[in-house]
Structures are given as C-alpha cells and as structure tokens.
Simulated assay, not measured.
Amino acid sequence: MKATHSTTQHYKQRTRWLPISAVAALLVVAGLTAVLAMGSPSPHKADAGISATGIGATASGATETMSSPPSATPTPAHQTPGDKTPGGKTPGNAAATSQTSAAPAPVHSSSQNAPASSLAGRIQPGVAYQGVATEYSAADGNGACLFGPSGDMMIAAMNELDYQDSEACGAHILVRAANGATVTVLITNECPYPCAPGQLDLSQQAFAKIADPRAGRIPITWQLVSPAAGSAISIRYKVGSSQYWCGIQVIGERNPVARLEVSTGSGWQQLSRSSYNYFLSPSGTGCGRAIRITDIYGQQVTTAAFPVEPDVIQPAQVQFAQH
C-alpha cells in the first residue's frame, strides 16, 4: 500500500497550496469576499478522486487477475528397474525418485477409431500415454493377474496406479519407442512403487523387440489396442470355489472387462472385482450359472452355464468384437 499512500499525499499537497495562489490572484481582481464565495478545489474531492480505498481496490484486483499459468501434467519420473518380489509383482528401485503425477500423461487423443469410454478405468481407449519402459525376467509369464504360465512372452507389468486393482489385467497395449519400433504386449502383472504412473515393465523378450536390452529403460508412448486375432474367451473358477462361494476369472478377452454378472434365475447380479483379478460371489449367488460379461466399450457376451470346477480353464466360445 506504499504506492497508495504516496499518491494520496501528493494530491493533498496540491490541494493545500493551489488555493493560496488562487486567492492571491483573485484578491487583486475582485477582493477577498468574492474569492471565498467562488471556493477552491476541495481536498476531500481530490482525495475521493483517487482515494486510498479506490487505489487499494485497483491494486487488489490486479493482483487477483495476475495468476500463474497452470502447470503442465508431469511426465512419469525416470525409474530404475529393481529385483522382482515373489508373487509376480515387479518393484522398481526404491531409491528412485517417486512420481507425483496422479495419472499417466496423455500425448494425444483421438475419437475417430476408439472413443473414450465411461466404462474404462484409468486407461482410456483412443488415448496415447507417455512414460518409460523397463524390463524384467518374467519367468513363465505368470504374474499378479493370476492368468498362469504364458505361451507368448510378449507381456508386461503395469505400474500400480494404472493397474488400478487389476482393471488393467488382460489389456493389450501397443508400445512405441522413440526409434519407431513397436511391440504389442498383454498386461499380466503389476509393477508397484517405485514404478511411476505411465511406466511399463516389459518382459525381457518384449523389451528386446524395441530396444537393446542393455539400455535398461527407455522413453515410450503406449496405448490400448483391440487386436484383430484371438481365440475365444475362457472362464475359470478360483481354487476353493463351490456353490456357496466362488471367484470367476475371464481369460483371453480381446478388450478389457468392465463388468461381470451372473444369472440368478430371475435376473442378473453384478459381482465385484478383486485386486487379484477374480469376480467374487461371497454368498454363492450365480456360481455354476450363465455369465454375462461387458467390455469397456459396452459390448456384452453371454456364456452358457459352467460347472464349478476350480482351477479349470473352460472355453466359452464367445469373444468381443474388435475396436
């Protein structure tokens, strides 16, 4: 408020001295009485014209409108892959700087081929994300998604945030390196902290498709894809399932699964998805009955009723359409 104070004092000084000169001139022409009748500029009017309150409001308004531009979405922090823990999860280097971004940074979006879906989780169709790719020894390909051993080692572990409690399981991801090389991987595993949002931990075999394995980590862009080829969806009941409790897993889906429902005889009941990639019926409702599966695009396929045979892969003879 220093500027406000000095400006007001300046006007007060002018108001105090100008009337003296005016009175001297007017006394010569018409006398003291006439001059007093005409009056001089009021110091209160001068102050009111640019009062401390008025200037203060202007300064305050200027301050309020001069805000900093919004910061750009932070890109995933560089991480160094570390040793893998039992159970399929692949932690990065705990000494690495963690990423504070709440989401993978989008590079561009397109709604021409795959519009964003309200049923999708953090990974939206038609959006390309940027991050880094690291590599790990995937052994037989089994991981946190509990799909079991994989015959195709083009697989990857998704960072914990984008993995979103197993919602990324079964997603097909097209990965592109800065050199233009690409590889499509299936998400079968989770890469917890310090894997950053946007980061993918590729199997060593998949990493070698896009970069020299000695690089260890490279910048990438990646996006969800719907592959053209693929076998039918299969269903598997979890170990311990019965008519009183069951867990149901979807295997081989072309597009990520958004919802699973079981027939109750009088309608459909939606089951909740566990963090270990099974849809659970705690009371046994629908166990052994027909199953209705919805993908992130809203497509629905319905299977026949399957017997509750724990840990047995049962082909369902249905598949989602390509997007």
Rank of each mutant, 00 (worst) to 15 (best):
T80I: 05
P76V: 09
K84A: 14
V107D: 03
G92P: 10
A133T: 14
P115N: 04
A102K: 10
S109W: 08
G126Q: 02
A105Y: 00
T90C: 08
Q124M: 10
T90Q: 14
P104C: 07
T97K: 01
A96S: 15
T90F: 06
Y129N: 01
G126W: 02
P70I: 09
Q130V: 09
S110W: 04
S118W: 00
S117H: 00
T90E: 13
D83N: 14
Q124I: 03
Q112S: 14
Q79A: 11
K89G: 04
T100P: 01
A102S: 11
I123R: 01
L119I: 04
H78G: 06
P70F: 11
P115E: 04
P86K: 02
N113R: 11
P104Y: 09
A120V: 08
Q99E: 09
P104W: 03
P106G: 05
P70E: 09
Q130K: 15
A95G: 13
A95P: 00
A133K: 00
G87D: 13
N93I: 00
G131I: 02
G88R: 00
P91E: 05
T85G: 13
Q79F: 10
Y129R: 05
A77N: 13
A116P: 00
T100N: 11
G92F: 02
A72Q: 09
D83K: 15
V107C: 01
A128S: 15
R122D: 01
H78C: 12
N93Q: 08
Q79N: 12
H78D: 09
A96H: 02
V127M: 06
S101V: 07
G121V: 03
P104R: 09
A116G: 10
A128V: 12
P76I: 03
G131K: 04
G87Q: 13
G92S: 10
D83G: 14
S110E: 04
P70T: 11
T100A: 08
N113L: 14
Y129P: 00
A105Q: 10
P125S: 07
P69L: 06
G121T: 03
G87K: 03
Y129W: 08
S71T: 13
Q79M: 11
A133D: 14
P86E: 12
G131T: 03
L119F: 12
G92W: 05
A133C: 15
P76A: 15
T134E: 12
A116D: 04
A128E: 13
P115T: 05
